[in-house]
Simulated assay, not measured.
Amino acid sequence: MNATWSRFNITSIVLGFAFLYLPIVLLVIFSFNESKLVTVWGGFSTKWYGELFNNVGLMNATWVTLRVALISASVATVLGTLAALTLTRYTRFRGRLLFSGMVFAPLVMPEVITGLSLLLLFVAIGLDRGFVTVTLAHITFSMCFVAVVVQSRLLSFDRSLEEAAMDLGAPPVKTFFQITLPVILPAIISGWMLAFTLSLDDLVIASFTSGPGATTLPMKIYSQVRLGVTPEINAACTILIGIVTAGVVAASIVNKRREVQRRRDEQVAQRG
């Protein structure tokens, strides 16, 4: 019985991972295809990466996407961390329920509604759609994801560390930067990576809030895919996959090293 369930579990896992990642693997493989036909293998070649870098439209869209993702992820990380600190440390203040609902509303709000509401807002205040509006829109919907990640870490944070630092004369600001921030930094990095990835991937909200000169890469790819998939698109997607993968691996290595250092510090403190 156990062997049967074991085989069933293994088969389910293999099929699940194949369903999720096999299309991505095929996309990466066919980005090195010699043939113009993306479904017919014509031999190994990297010429489409050269064609990609010569494609002005795709390169401009890539540059816009990276700038939006970097700025929006950084701002959303700061605002999301502050929101998480407010919800965790200040449990009783007037309007807390409303504030909490406003912070987490984008998590359950359909992207179409979010994009349309932001579009109406920008039109009402007379803000021309472009790079700024796309960036503001991405900050709006990614901030809540950062708040969730950081809040989950703060809920398990040992407040006695902060109390001990303040008892020794450290002011609240110094206590935060020297005690609290290093402990929750892995969660902040994870939140930044999540916000960065969501910004790279967004199509719906960017379609509502973008304007001339602010076409993002997902929008550019979607417009070209309707006319047929080209190997250049496979190459662009492969580069994006590589960027996200490198970021995730780097964040994992940093978090692992910080965890190892934290354990060493605890062992030294116990021995002392």
Rank of each mutant, 00 (worst) to 15 (best):
R7L: 06
R7W: 06
V14Q: 01
L15C: 09
F19Q: 10
I24N: 03
I24D: 05
L27S: 04
L27P: 02
S31E: 09
F32N: 00
N33P: 00
E34R: 13
S35K: 04
K36E: 12
V38H: 02
T39F: 09
T39I: 09
W41I: 05
G42M: 07
G42S: 03
G43F: 03
T46F: 05
W48A: 00
G50D: 12
E51Y: 11
L52G: 08
N54S: 15
V56D: 14
V56E: 15
V56R: 14
L58P: 11
L58W: 10
T65V: 06
R67K: 15
A69N: 05
A69F: 07
I71D: 07
V75Q: 11
T77P: 09
V78R: 12
G80M: 09
T81E: 09
L82F: 14
A84M: 07
L85W: 14
T86L: 13
T88S: 15
R89C: 12
G95T: 04
F99G: 04
F99H: 02
G101T: 09
A105P: 11
P106Q: 04
E111A: 13
L120E: 05
L120I: 08
L121K: 10
F122W: 03
V123P: 00
I125F: 12
I125L: 06
I125R: 02
L127E: 12
L127W: 10
R129E: 11
V134I: 11
V134G: 06
L136W: 10
H138K: 07
H138N: 13
S142D: 08
C144G: 08
F145V: 11
F145D: 02
A147I: 05
V150H: 04
R153Q: 13
R153N: 09
L155A: 12
L155I: 12
L155E: 14
S156R: 13
F157N: 11
R159C: 01
S160K: 10
L161A: 14
E162I: 14
A165Y: 05
L168I: 04
G169D: 08
G169H: 10
P172K: 06
F176Q: 08
V183S: 14
I184T: 06
A187S: 14
A187I: 11
I188K: 06
S190Q: 08
A195N: 01
L198N: 08
L198A: 04
S199N: 00
L200K: 07
D201H: 01
D201S: 02
D202S: 01
L203P: 06
F208G: 04
F208Y: 14
T209L: 01
P212W: 00
M219P: 11
Q224Y: 03
R226A: 03
L227A: 09
G228M: 02
T230P: 11
P231N: 10
I233M: 02
N234Q: 09
T238M: 01
L240G: 04
G242S: 07
A246T: 14
A251M: 06
A251E: 03
N255G: 14
R258A: 12
E259N: 13
V260G: 03
Q261C: 08
Q261A: 15
R262M: 10
R264W: 13
V268C: 05
G272M: 10
